Deep mutational scan, measured.
Amino acid sequence: THFTSQQLQELEATFQRNHYPDMSTREEIAVWTNLTEARVRVWFKNRRAKWR
């Protein structure tokens, strides 16, 4: 999946605040970024792996 810079900005900003967002937070992010909750969940999983 290719993310727009706007989507990445929103995802990264949320990641800085919370590395493990809950389901409702992921659903909110999905609405803001026009992505599915599953895409958001996978992005956070991959981002945490990169962060370690």
Rank of each mutant, 00 (worst) to 15 (best):
A30H: 02
Q16I: 09
N34S: 09
E12G: 00
S5K: 14
K45T: 07
M23H: 12
N46V: 13
A38C: 09
V40G: 00
Y20K: 04
A30G: 07
Q6P: 05
V40C: 02
Q7R: 03
R39E: 15
T1E: 12
L8N: 06
A13Q: 09
S24Y: 09
W51E: 12
V40I: 09
R26K: 02
K50M: 11
S24P: 11
E37L: 05
E37S: 05
E37A: 06
Q9I: 12
L11H: 01
A38P: 11
A13W: 12
T36A: 05
L35D: 02
S5E: 12
W43D: 00
W43I: 01
L8D: 05
H19V: 05
V40D: 00
V31S: 12
Y20R: 05
S5Q: 13
R26Y: 08
L11T: 00
V42G: 08
T1F: 14
V42E: 15
S24L: 12
N18A: 04
T33P: 02
Q7C: 05
R26C: 07
Q16L: 11
E28A: 14
E27N: 11
S24C: 11
A30K: 02
T36N: 05
Q9N: 09
R26A: 03
R48S: 02
K45D: 05
Q9H: 12
K50G: 07
R41H: 07
L8Q: 08
S24E: 11
V42K: 14
R48T: 03
D22H: 05
T36M: 03
Q6E: 11
N46E: 13
F15Q: 01
A49D: 08
E12C: 06
E10V: 15
P21A: 06
W32Y: 13
R41E: 06
F15A: 03
H2E: 11
L8R: 07
M23Q: 12
E12D: 03
K45G: 05
M23S: 07
M23I: 10
V40Q: 00
V31F: 13
E28L: 14
A13C: 13
V31T: 11
V42D: 12
E27Y: 12
E37D: 03
K45F: 09
I29P: 00
T25N: 05
E27H: 13
S24K: 15
Q7A: 06
L8V: 08
Q6D: 10
R52E: 08
L35E: 03
F15L: 01
A13F: 10
D22I: 05
R26D: 02
N46T: 10
R47E: 03
T1P: 12
F3R: 03
R52V: 09
R17A: 09
E27A: 12
R52I: 10
L8F: 05
Y20W: 12
T4V: 03
V42M: 14
R39T: 14
L8I: 11
Y20L: 03
N34W: 04
N18T: 09
R48W: 04
T4M: 04
N18E: 06
F44Y: 06
R26G: 02
T4R: 04
Y20P: 01
V40W: 01
P21I: 03
R41C: 07
T14A: 15
P21F: 03
W51A: 09
E27Q: 14
Q6K: 13
Y20M: 05
A13D: 08
N34P: 01
V42W: 14
I29Y: 03
A13N: 08
V40M: 01
E10W: 15
N34F: 06
H19A: 07
Q9T: 10
R39P: 01
A13M: 12
N34E: 07
N46S: 08
F3K: 03
N34D: 09
Y20S: 05
D22N: 10
W43M: 00
N46Q: 13
E12K: 02
L35A: 07
Q9R: 13
R48Q: 05
F44C: 02
H19C: 09
A30W: 04
F15I: 00
K45E: 09
A38H: 12
A49W: 07
Y20E: 03
T25E: 13
R47N: 01
L11M: 05
R41F: 06
I29S: 00
R17Y: 09
L8W: 11
T1W: 13
F15H: 01
Q9S: 11
Q6L: 11
E27R: 14
W32G: 10
L35W: 06
R48P: 00
Q16V: 08
H19F: 06
R41M: 06
F44Q: 00
F3P: 05
Q9D: 09
T25Q: 14
R17I: 11
R17F: 09
Q6N: 09
V40S: 00
S5D: 11
H19K: 14
Y20G: 01
N34R: 07
T14L: 15
L11I: 02
F44N: 00
L35R: 02
R41A: 10
H2A: 11
A49K: 14
H2D: 11
T33D: 02
L35I: 06
Q6F: 14
R17K: 13
S5A: 13
I29D: 01
W43A: 00
R17L: 11
L8T: 07
R48V: 06
T33Q: 06
V40T: 00
D22L: 04
R26Q: 03
F15P: 01
D22A: 08
L11R: 00
Q7I: 08
T1D: 12
E12W: 05
Q7N: 04
F3I: 11
A13H: 09
P21E: 01
V42Y: 11
D22S: 09
R41D: 07
E37V: 06
Q16N: 08
P21S: 02
R52D: 07
E10N: 09
R52T: 08
H19Y: 05
W32K: 15
F44L: 02
I29N: 01
N34V: 05
M23T: 08
V31N: 12
R39F: 11
E37I: 06
Q7H: 04
P21Q: 02
P21L: 03
Q9L: 12
R17W: 10
W43P: 00
W32V: 15
R39H: 10
N34T: 05
T4I: 03
L8Y: 07
A49E: 09
Q7Y: 04
A49Y: 08
I29V: 06
Q6Y: 13
I29C: 03
E28D: 09
E10T: 15
M23P: 06
V42I: 14
W51K: 06
A30Q: 02
R47V: 02
T36K: 04
K45S: 08
E12V: 03
F3N: 03
H19M: 13
F3L: 14
N34A: 07
R26W: 05
Q16M: 10
T25R: 09
R47L: 04
I29M: 04
R48A: 04
A49V: 08
S24Q: 14
N18V: 07
T4D: 05
H2F: 11
T4W: 05
W43G: 00
T36Q: 04
H2C: 14
E28S: 10
A38D: 10
A30D: 01
Q7F: 04
V42P: 00
N18F: 06
K45C: 10
N46Y: 14
K50F: 08
S24D: 09
R41N: 08
N46F: 12
W32E: 11
W43L: 00
Q6I: 11
P21G: 03
T14W: 15
T4C: 06
Q6V: 10
H19T: 03
W43V: 00
K45R: 12
R48D: 01
A13I: 10
E10C: 15
K50Q: 13
